[in-house]
């Protein structure tokens, strides 16, 4: 091993970068996978109801389902436009 190699090894190795990136994306995708199939449709229908009264668009309505033990919380976050 040359002296150059010694310094090169001090850099973060690429396999560690790969592992870190994979852990993040896999956790994210597993979380989405556990969401019930009706969630996108629920979001769409809620949006339609809200639109009857307020002018909002798709990205101003967030629907998320959190599982905490044996209790699920449906979280609804609507950003109303400025008057």
């Amino acid at each position: 091993m040359s002296i150059l190699d010694f310094f090169r090894n001090n850099k973060k190795d690429t396999a560690a970068v790969a592992k870190e990136r994979l852990q993040i994306i896999v956790a994210h995708e597993r979380n989405q996978r556990n969401q019930p199939d009706y969630l996108p449709k629920l979001q769409q229908e809620l949006l339609e109801v809200i639109r009857k009264y307020v002018d909002v668009n798709q990205d101003q309505v967030e629907v998320a389902l959190d599982n905490a033990g044996n209790c699920s919380v449906l979280e609804l976050n609507i950003t109303l436009p400025d008057r």
Partner: peptide, 15 residues
Amino acid sequence: AAKGEMLAVEDVEEI
């Protein structure tokens, strides 16, 4: 894998 150029078997197992 030993040189850190490839995911190690333990990494893939863990992920």
